[in-house]
Design a protein around this nucleic acid. Structure first.
Lengths: 215, 215, 215, 215
DNA sequence: GATGAATGAGCGTTCATTCAT
DNA sequence: TATGAATGAACGCTCATTCAT
């Protein structure tokens, strides 16, 4: 029985327990990133970690739980990295630019994590065949960005558009920037990020009224 | 033994042969779309087609060839559908809008095909572990769209931006629109398409020179 | 229904029928020789013959009958070649030497046939797991050679030894000469054959009585 | 995952691991001997061992490794048995006779091992279609026997003949003696062995010079 | 006479999982 | 805590054979 299951609530996880879990998660991330979802078996992960295959089953209830832990771990990591870097921006445009830059900065240091997350999102299914981590999993991100756009529209900074479509599209643009960089590692991420920021600035900002130009 | 490509080019495949191959491809597309790549085995495909598992091996050299045929089939289909609908547009903005609308129209009638293509693109790997259909597979699309943007920039219709980033981002926006619609089948595709067209119109059109308005 | 099955006894096999059967047997021999028994399937044979797989099943009751036909064909061929070349030899030693030389001559022109025969002998089993063509299949050869040796012993040409062991060993020596030549195609078959003839001459000839030497 | 060769060389395989491997090898030998190469599948071997099919794949990297282990095992076994029994023989003729007797003695107790080895030698091929264990695999035996004959020729004990042909023929004679005994289990192996020893003694010993006898 | 099409069994292999130690 | 050992299902694929045309 793993310590976590203890009912007395004491010392739910030992240090060594946590270290093993972290090590396994790390190796699993590497495996998913390098080999792809379909080619990543528990045996391959164990091989990378230099441990017996059974150890994974001991520390995680099954492949499903291991994957959930990976998703949790990476998601928490990204959020902790990106959110602080978006604070203090007065305008929606500024916040979006900061958002994109922060994500790009994260990408550089966490290529494997993001690749693994992508493999998992694209492939993991529930037993009834539906995606386990569908678009719906992005809802928090969409909603935050929607809120950002809505405030910008209310303040007159941004033009009128569907905030949900814009939020979804921004995410798609960022994700594809990552995929493109993975495919072409020499690709200039910083330039791409700036282009994206410009793109969405033009796409969202309020238009100066045409008639007033000659005033 | 299936009749191989004859050197004289005559009667390469019989009618019944083609029918079976088409049926198998169709069922495979359904399976990939519904079950996802990792859960789609030849047995599952055969089950859907109501045939014995070995029949697939009889008509296709292997799973690899079946997948290649699916990719070829869908790619040819989508190209034949979209390209004609983009002709006759004078402006880059108009062409892009027509492009988005055509793809949306295709999506409605070919949800499974596009889903299957996505599953295949995201998962198929060569024996050395690299993606079989990587971003590079989108190169023709990127280049066509780049050319469109470049001509728009030269004519003064569009502002200055990196055409490659814009091309990549347009594709990402379209792909994500599809994924979003799959996740939320009640989502208004037409409205989304129009929003995208507006978005990229704002993002790409030339800015009226600030100084010339005689303020 | 194949013509052979006709009860009226007329024209049991047509010319074209025989030609096809001969062609299939020839290609099967090649396949067994090149690929080995385990890798030779009806499909592979058909491929070599440039015919559909089903044709073999049409002309032969099954793989079993095809193999039987091959054995019959090759056996008859060998016998027809070797026997005439052994006639006219007065002594047992001379007959054996002629025998070895004739077989060697046959080997040179029928490498594949002998290889195929070997593959079949070593591998074909009856349904109860026993060898279909065991050592027992060599009985006619053994007996003929035994008879030769026995006559040589009666005439005083040969010393006293077990004719059966000698007959078996001669066959083994010839078979291994063939295998060795197959493995080393540059090996000098003629020299090997002469060595064998010498070897068995020394091994079989009557010894001059030791005591009489000083007479 | 089976514990691979550790770099520190410690505890490479557990006791139970070795026991299972030995058991599987033993059952595989039986299966090859009884059923023949083509009819021996991992499933059949597992059936004999009373274990699940996957267990074999767990203990051996694949069918190839299992077969290699069988060959290694039997080869080592036979060498350890025969070599000591050939020592202390002063003459080449004596050594050869001891050799034949030792092999016969081994045959009696290891019928299946030798049968299995034969099945494997005659059938296993590399992926390019060539024999995995060809005649070349007998080279060490040939060379040792060649050396024996050569020394006998130099000492004047043996007549002049091609040592390689003689070595190859001796091996063929021994192998065929085994095959004959397998086909006719009541066959008198001891008598056969003595006949062979006589045969090769006559075939190899120096002839008394014809002229010196003072006829 | 000949063929394309299909079948069902069996192949070697990989997998996630279980369990006694 | 950790592991080696084992399992049974499923995988992609090949096979000899059957059969309607």
């Amino acid at each position: 029985m793993r310590p976590e299951d203890r009912s007395d609530g004491q010392k739910r996880t030992s240090f060594i327990e946590e270290a093993r879990r972290a090590q396994i998660i790390e190796c699993a991330v590497e495996a998913f990133a390098e080999l792809g979802y379909a080619n990543t078996s528990l045996a391959r992960i164990a091989e990378r970690a230099g441990i017996s295959k059974g150890v994974i089953s001991y520390h995680f209830a099954g492949k499903t739980e291991l994957i959930e832990q990976i998703v949790d771990h990476v998601y928490r990591d990204i959020t902790q990295f990106v959110l602080p870097r978006m604070e203090g921006e007065a305008t929606a445009t500024g916040a979006l630019r900061a958002n994109i830059r922060a994500v790009v900065e994260y990408m550089r240091g966490h290529r494997d994590q993001l690749l693994a997350l992508g493999e998992i999102f694209n492939n993991v299914r529930t037993s009834d065949g539906r995606r386990r981590y569908g678009v719906a999993f992005n809802e928090p991100i969409y909603e935050a960005r929607e809120e950002l756009f809505r405030r910008g529209q209310q303040s007159g900074e941004l033009r009128s558009f569907d905030p949900r479509v814009m939020a979804v599209t921004v995410q798609a643009a960022i994700d594809e920037m990552f995929a493109y960089w993975v495919a072409y590692p020499d690709h200039d991420l910083t330039a791409h990020a700036d282009e994206l920021a410009d793109l969405f600035e033009h796409a969202t900002r309020a238009e100066r009224p045409r008639g007033t130009a000659g005033r």
